[in-house]
Nucleic acid binder design. Sequence first.
DNA 1: GATGAATGAGCTTTCATTCAT
DNA 2: GATGAATGAAAGCTCATTCAT
Lengths: 229, 229, 229, 229
Amino acid sequence: MPSARGARAVRPRRRAEEIIDAAAAVFAERGYHGASTQDVADRLGMRQASLYYYFPSKEAALEQVCLRSVGDFVERAQAIAAGPDRAADKLAAIVESHLAPVETRGDYVRCFLRERRFLPRDSARRIGRVARQYEGILQGVIEAGIAAGELRRDLDPRLTTLALIGMCNAAMEWYGREPNTPLGRIANKFAALVVDGVRATRGASPPSGNRAKGSDGRAGSRPRRRVGG
Amino acid sequence: MPSARGARAVRPRRRAEEIIDAAAAVFAERGYHGASTQDVADRLGMRQASLYYYFPSKEAALEQVCLRSVGDFVERAQAIAAGPDRAADKLAAIVESHLAPVETRGDYVRCFLRERRFLPRDSARRIGRVARQYEGILQGVIEAGIAAGELRRDLDPRLTTLALIGMCNAAMEWYGREPNTPLGRIANKFAALVVDGVRATRGASPPSGNRAKGSDGRAGSRPRRRVGG
Amino acid sequence: MPSARGARAVRPRRRAEEIIDAAAAVFAERGYHGASTQDVADRLGMRQASLYYYFPSKEAALEQVCLRSVGDFVERAQAIAAGPDRAADKLAAIVESHLAPVETRGDYVRCFLRERRFLPRDSARRIGRVARQYEGILQGVIEAGIAAGELRRDLDPRLTTLALIGMCNAAMEWYGREPNTPLGRIANKFAALVVDGVRATRGASPPSGNRAKGSDGRAGSRPRRRVGG
Amino acid sequence: MPSARGARAVRPRRRAEEIIDAAAAVFAERGYHGASTQDVADRLGMRQASLYYYFPSKEAALEQVCLRSVGDFVERAQAIAAGPDRAADKLAAIVESHLAPVETRGDYVRCFLRERRFLPRDSARRIGRVARQYEGILQGVIEAGIAAGELRRDLDPRLTTLALIGMCNAAMEWYGREPNTPLGRIANKFAALVVDGVRATRGASPPSGNRAKGSDGRAGSRPRRRVGG
DNA sequence: GATGAATGAGCTTTCATTCAT
DNA sequence: GATGAATGAAAGCTCATTCAT
């Protein structure tokens, strides 16, 4: 049943959320240290002092941005990892899931990637834990895949994990600047690359080329197809 | 600024170079906007005002850092691209070459990756051109590989290029924090991943796993072996 | 900067006005470049940083000073020029009017005279226009006087204008340092000098010697007597 | 007989003089506090530090500029005052003499007028003395003229002196910016203005209008004619 | 005679933050 | 709930000056 929290509580939350949005946008654009609280206020048509009604400090705002940026990455990855798919498909699904927020919450994710290191020790650690958790899930998928014989035996699970994540994170930077490159296509191609590499198939048929056929240009959707045949 | 005529100008250059080194280190650690010129001076045991004998502005120092960080990336990639190797091997070699500076010039490269966006329009554009050139070389290798039938036909050359570079660049961030991960191993595994993907080989044998055997921990060297058989 | 909507904005304006006063005083005393914003703040018992709540820059403060210094010079001169007096009397009145602010707004006027050249191109031009307008009014009076046969036919209107203004402006520098020289007397004597020169009258009676008799020591008042008989 | 000072002594003097020239120019253009020693060095193609071989401080340079700017004003005025001319003619001659340096040494004079107040107490006083001496000479001429019945009895010698000097000094500011206004004409018209005023002559003929007939456009020359008839 | 290197002091300006209202 | 006013701290930068060479 939908909770009926007092309408009064809705408003301030609302405004605070707007401020975090603005902070994310501004921090993403100019960097945490390059952005001033005035910039944030400007974006909201607010006076700069008013921000301090909602946040005790600039740092606190960054922390909120980073916390929200983490979002449900872990949950979604966990769900995928726990699923019945084969390892390669899971990885592809994680790539897709990882890339999805770039469109809707790009500012947040960019802040996470580039500005979280400016957080105070404490919150940095807290957020770092989440990041490591996320990596752990991927790594688990890879290790399981190797054990099951589904993935190449010579993979280094840790390095592969980092490579995968790095590849995706990089996309956060250039997505939007690359023309004609819908998110779905990126996810698709990235997945194909990771799963099967660049080398032309030796003897065997082209496997994942037809993966997610027709999904080019629209991907973020839930019903993912198995990768490859 | 010191005039640089004749060999006599070697000494002052020395100092300027030291300052750029310090700036790179400080900017890499705290971010351009998070670092103060005082920080740079401190690192050199210099007075802050003295920096301005060598550089007209903090921005100019960043520009120098970024210019130097670009280094010979393009030249090395060009050399590899122009070589006789097969496309997959070229890509592996480029990965190796791309990662090499992380150890010796990590600060520079990190500045380039994270701080170059704070450069004034003009120098940003100049440096952007070099970056695009570099991407072009990679992309050329991939396109040629596809045309030659050496690389999978369904690759998107642009996206593959960006994925590759992104993957490598990400390593710049965590290299050194990951224990027991010598550069050579990273290069090796990254190359293997890109070339052959994660999927267990279908029928055929794992080819590039033994690439650069023994080169683990030492990679940046010139005499690269062919990847795979 | 404080928004200035409605009557509510009166108070803050107050403070800004005080700052401009202080700036005028300090700039007049030490010169624009010789004065620091700290000096201005000191004079107000304010912290230096607080000035920037009211003004975006030191230059902007100078601009305000210069704008205010221009004051109603033009209007007053225009009123006199438009009056029914004879040309010589008009000039005398303008001299008087020109000198009047030296006592009440000497700092402003001195800033205008000596520091306006340090204004940025734009405001310098705007203010220069007002100055030229003022000169134009004087010159107009002289030209009309010549045409009416009231003034010597061999006058150079332009040079006479500049001489007159220069003479008055110079008084801004030494007024207050010359003992026993009330403003009224200065105005009176300057007017007499300009109108009739230094030469003893040839045959004719001393004309303007008794001008404004008794007005010595108090002049700035409106009801000016005709000069001469 | 021409003295034969060692040629060696000529050089350094030479350079020092050049530096003072440059300082005068730069101080005149930007104001003493607005000009940097670097500006002076730039104008000479010298390194900034080299200035200190010739001058112990920036202030000392200003002092030199001001000292030289005073030049032979006093001597020339004294010579005129001591001459046999009538008072009105002497004043006219002094005006001419006063204006003469504007062309050849305008930078010096402008420095004197505007920047001497930034001199340290001591040199300010020394230079102030010279200025007062100069004023005294003029005032003496006026007083003598009055006593001799050549000048109007109602003149205030002090104010008349200051008016005269102020008028001339003002010309230093605009001379060069006023088109088509040769120095001779300025001197001529200023003298005429002061001597006879602006008022059209009453009955008597215009006397000094034809003063220095034909001298318009060339005046600064030595052989001065008597003013007026 | 001149300069490269360096620096102490001070500059204008920015900024996160506070607080009475 | 929001803001006007103010400020401490620090930033980047300039500059007159020094000094060994």
